[in-house]
């Protein structure tokens, strides 16, 4: 028996629906059809009236969740693809995110975003949106990289009193497997050292954690030990764990699948440069996707995103300084 990343997301929603009558799921095709990726398979049958098909209206989907959350429910909204959440951005950034600050009343809701690139998905089904959401105050942004985290962090997200953007990576849905669902969990706001090492720190999140681990394997063959830090949650950012790692290694590479202007990797480098300057033996570096829309053809796509090979190259440069 094994559990995939997608199974974990489905199981977490099933458990949340079982445990808390205020939880409901809202999204396109999530009902009888079970969702475009089957993340809600059989849930509509098991929880009648609580797994609800929405019209193709991303703005209204998020707006409706904001209203329901204000009224004490805990809606989980599935965007069919993270890319389409741009259409609901106003409700998330200006409504959900401002409610607690403005009114003192919580707005507990989760926006599930099937994120990131897969071969052939192209410009409008491949995006990573975490940086845009993380920029706005009032939101929590999670980017789980493992099956265990997909399960425990989604449960934690649903239980939180704040609006949470849950970025789940489509490339991990079917291929990433664990033996079973976790019985206990690391708190969602703690970053995790996915691989210890003494020579260089590679900070990554979501699918990039696995590319970073593969790059670390490659460098180990060359005699370098890379410490891979999995951020898990990008807002709030666990700066302490990052700085502690840089204190051990003296070198930093921050990797993100999203675009290079600003974003999570820029935030990581900025914080380490300003708060841990004296820990550094080399200039901190970033590696991101290329600054173009995400290409359709796999030949172009695999050159567009950071891969284990490109991460290893960047790590060698940091180590050579």
């Amino acid at each position: 028996m094994s559990v995939t990343y997608l199974d974990a997301i489905r199981a977490a929603q099933e458990k949340a629906l079982e445990d808390d009558p205020s939880v409901f799921i809202y999204g396109q095709d999530v009902g009888k059809f079970g969702g475009a990726f089957k993340a809600t398979k059989n849930l509509a049958e098991k929880f009648p009236g609580r797994v609800i098909d929405s019209p193709i209206s991303e703005d209204a989907m998020v707006g409706l969740a904001v209203g329901a959350a204000m009224e004490g429910m805990r809606p989980v909204v599935e965007m069919q693809f993270a890319d389409f959440s741009t259409v609901g951005l106003n409700q998330m950034l200006n409504h959900a995110a401002t409610t607690y600050w403005r009114t003192g009343r919580p707005c507990p809701m989760v926006l599930r975003l099937p994120s990131g690139g897969t071969p052939g998905s192209g410009p409008f089904h491949s995006q990573s949106m975490e940086a845009i959401y993380a920029h706005y105050p009032g939101l929590v942004v999670m980017t789980p990289a493992t099956v265990e985290d997909a399960y425990s962090m989604l449960l934690e997200a649903i239980a939180m009193p704040d609006p949470v953007v849950f970025c789940e990576h489509k490339l991990l849905y079917y291929h990433l497997k664990a033996k079973s669902l976790p019985a206990e969990a690391v708190p969602a706001f703690k970053a995790h050292v996915a691989r210890p090492g003494r020579d260089v720190t590679c900070v990554a999140y979501s699918a990039m954690v696995h590319e970073a681990l593969a790059a670390a394997d490659e460098l180990a063959g060359e005699g370098y030990e890379t410490e891979v830090v999995d951020l898990r949650t990008v807002k709030p950012l666990d700066t302490d764990t990052i700085l502690a790692s840089v204190a051990r290694t003296g070198r930093l590479l921050a990797v993100g699948e999203s675009w290079p202007w600003g974003g999570v990797s820029a935030e990581v480098v900025s914080r380490v440069a300003s708060e841990g300057f004296e820990l550094l033996d080399a200039p901190p570096r970033r590696l991101n996707a290329k600054d173009t829309p995400i290409p359709y053809h796999p030949n172009l796509w695999s050159a567009h995103r950071p891969t284990a090979v490109r991460i290893a190259e960047a790590l060698r440069e940091v180590l050579r300084y």
């Binding site: 409901f24 609580r50 209204a60 409706l64 969740a65 209203g67 329901a68 204000m70 409700q91 200006n94």
Partner: peptide, 25 residues
């Protein structure tokens, strides 16, 4: 009384959400 945001039309679905929640409750 819902506190309006300035973005016009946004309160329509939010009000619908409050009503859906009341119905579920």
């Amino acid at each position: 009384i819902l506190p309006m945001i300035s973005h016009l039309g946004a309160m329509v679905s939010a009000t619908a959400g409050v009503l859906l929640a009341k119905r579920m409750k």
